[in-house]
Design a protein around this nucleic acid. Structure first.
Lengths: 214, 214
DNA sequence: TTATAAAAGCGACCAATGGTCGCTTTTAGG
DNA sequence: CCTAAAAGCGACCATTGGTCGCTTTTATAA
């Protein structure tokens, strides 16, 4: 409704959220990229160009939801990181929380992950930046583990990436190998305990080879 | 050129490849999704509907290239798997070969990976099938490792996925933490040796917890 | 050599889409 | 109650993936 004065930041966010929520059913049913801006506007009960007053491009509609979801995810992880716990405990708690959050709205997050890949370059850049921020948070916990002596001197960023990447297999695996909780445990077992049998000859050989290369 | 008789399978593949190669420069420069079928046809020096005689949809153009690349990748991996080697040696050789192949045409593979995500549902299904086939190949090598006693009794499919996923960080990492070869070694170190310090209290605690959950 | 059937090739055309523009409606504040 | 400026709107535009009916070319049978 026209006001004669500009909407405040907060009001814009609220209206955006309203519009998005109203259009969510259509978008989840047809998929975001297959839903036209006309349909979104109709679902929200506003004119098409009014929709363009709230979102400058179609990408921004999805980006808005992604940012909100990522923000909430990040806050949750940050809170856990600041607890006085061993690194491995923090990592497990963060990943468990992330898992639970996603599973509560599995379809929604799945949609977002898939559709986010289809956005334009500019939107992708913003998503990448968010991802970096999250990666760095996890990385800092891994560095804590190295500092406190429970983790080996590993490439913390690489471990963070692999761990985060592994989570997507847990949640979105099209060929699940167990319940998500079981798979989460397996992921921690694999990455932190390691695949190879300790004390066995093959392990020593691998370590020697990696040593040589370095 | 019209022939009065249908093109053979092989001729069709050859023509497709010619058309694709001719259009490759435009597609790599603008990005596949941003390149229109008109532009592809022009680049290949044929009419638009002739292009549609070779490829039923736009997606099929990219899918054709993806299938060729994946096939070649798979053959290479299969050859290595059939050598008489310990599992860990095979895995390393496969991943090294994959890495080298991709690095030779880094931009091309990067494009493909990104653009493949934007294809329609039907094409995605075919890509997923190819991915499964490749996953199963890696998985079989991991199972060999378990059988021969050098790997712990792990979820082989999950390890395969994590390993394959980690490779993308090695190749496409926007924030690389070293040369690809160094990062490959780190990946093997992390996944097969494990992140945690052996014999340390934290490791025992983690293992106990994972044991309890199971 | 020539007639012909069928394949190869083509561009005008179609519906749908993201995005823009000029206009109308509504409202806060003087 | 007047008015300036914001909110809202749908007709319109260029571009896109894809289709259709027609023309051109050629292998082969007579």
């Amino acid at each position: 409704m026209p006001k004669g004065i500009p909407l405040t930041e907060e009001e814009i966010r609220r209206r955006r959220r309203e519009v998005f929520r109203a259009a969510l059913p259509v978008m989840t049913q047809k998929g975001f990229s297959a839903t036209s801006m006309r349909e979104i506007a109709d679902a929200a009960g506003i004119g098409k160009s009014t929709l363009y007053d709230y979102f400058r491009t179609k990408d921004e509609v999805l980006l808005f939801a992604i940012e909100e979801a990522m923000d909430s995810m990040y806050s949750g992880a940050l809170e856990i990181r600041n607890r006085p716990l061993p690194a491995i405990e923090k990592l497990y708690a963060i990943m468990k929380q992330e898992l639970d959050t996603i599973l509560q709205n599995k379809e929604f997050f799945m949609q977002i992950m898939v559709e986010a890949q289809k956005l334009g370059m500019h939107s992708q850049q913003r998503i990448i930046q968010m991802r970096y921020t999250y990666q760095d948070l996890i990385r800092s916990v891994i560095e804590q583990g190295v500092t406190e002596g429970s983790f080996r001197k590993v490439n913390s960023l690489l471990v963070a990436r692999i761990l985060i990447g592994a989570m997507s297999h847990v949640v979105y695996a099209t060929r699940p190998t167990g319940s998500p909780e079981e798979m989460l445990n397996e992921v921690f077992d694999l990455i932190f305990v390691g695949v190879m049998v300790p004390g066995e000859a093959g392990l020593a050989a691998l370590q020697a080879r990696l040593e040589d290369a370095a």
